[in-house]
Simulated scan of single mutants.
Amino acid sequence: MRHRRRLLKIGLALAALVGLGGVAVPFVSSLNPSATAGAGLPRLSIAGLEPGTYRYFVVTEGRDVRDGYLVLRRDDGGIGVFQLRFKGEAVVLPDLHWWSWGNVCINFVPVPMEGRLLPGGTIHCSDTDLGEWSQAEHRWDYFGRNLGSMPDDLYTPKHVIERSEIVIGKSI
């Protein structure tokens, strides 16, 4: 009798676990992105982007302030992807934090050394009307790290590189 009760308890516990697993599978699988979720993600073609060069990408059109990216391939072959905002043809400089935006800059570019993006180079605004403080503070290295003391580092969005494209918003 005692043996039967023990078998019954074990059997019921196993049935409950199987039932719980059967109920949990749909919930867990619903957490995965749908098959069409990646279709709308920005894709940036880096075909032909040689080491030591860079390219701007604007991914939203028709608005006053548009989203875009600066993609640079450092001379060592590494790739930096930095999210920027554009107003017209100018880059809206990050204010003190990457999520807050300040002045606009027409000449916001990586500054090459010997014509290439060599280690030690900077990304900064070379507009002359920007002011001394802003000129000193709005400078970043090719890894997006701020070289001044106040503004944040350039924001690197979540992304993956698939063949010759960068897919923004996707992770491994």
Rank of each mutant, 00 (worst) to 15 (best):
M1C: 06
M1K: 03
R2D: 14
R4I: 14
R4G: 07
R6T: 15
R6M: 14
L7H: 01
K9I: 15
L12I: 13
L12R: 14
L12P: 15
L14C: 10
A16M: 13
A16Q: 04
L17P: 03
V18K: 00
G19Q: 12
G21V: 02
G22H: 13
A24L: 14
P26C: 15
L31P: 11
S34K: 10
S34Q: 09
S34G: 11
A35Q: 13
A35D: 12
A37G: 03
A37T: 10
A39H: 12
A39T: 12
G40Q: 08
L41E: 05
P42T: 12
L44W: 03
S45W: 04
A47Q: 08
A47D: 01
G48D: 05
G52Q: 07
T53A: 11
Y54C: 09
Y56H: 10
Y56D: 07
F57Y: 06
V59N: 01
V59T: 12
T60E: 06
T60S: 11
T60F: 10
E61L: 14
G62F: 03
R66I: 12
R66A: 06
R66E: 15
L70S: 11
D75S: 11
D76G: 09
V81A: 06
F82K: 05
R85W: 01
R85E: 00
K87Y: 15
E89W: 15
E89P: 00
V91M: 04
V91S: 07
D95I: 07
L96S: 09
S100V: 05
W101Q: 09
G102W: 03
G102F: 00
N103I: 03
V104N: 11
V104T: 15
C105T: 03
I106C: 07
I106N: 08
V109P: 00
P110Y: 11
P110Q: 13
M113C: 04
M113K: 14
E114P: 04
G115F: 13
L117M: 11
L118M: 10
T122Q: 07
I123R: 06
I123V: 14
H124P: 01
H124S: 13
C125Y: 11
C125I: 09
S126V: 07
S126I: 08
D127L: 01
D127C: 09
T128L: 04
T128P: 05
E132M: 01
Q135Y: 07
A136M: 08
E137C: 06
H138K: 08
W140A: 02
F143N: 05
N146G: 01
L147M: 09
M150T: 06
D152W: 02
D152S: 14
D153Y: 04
L154N: 00
K158H: 03
K158P: 00
H159D: 04
V160R: 12
V160M: 14
V160D: 03
I161P: 00
E162C: 14
S164K: 15
S164H: 15
V167D: 00
V167N: 00
V167L: 04
V167F: 01
G169W: 04
K170C: 04
I172T: 00
I172L: 01
I172A: 14
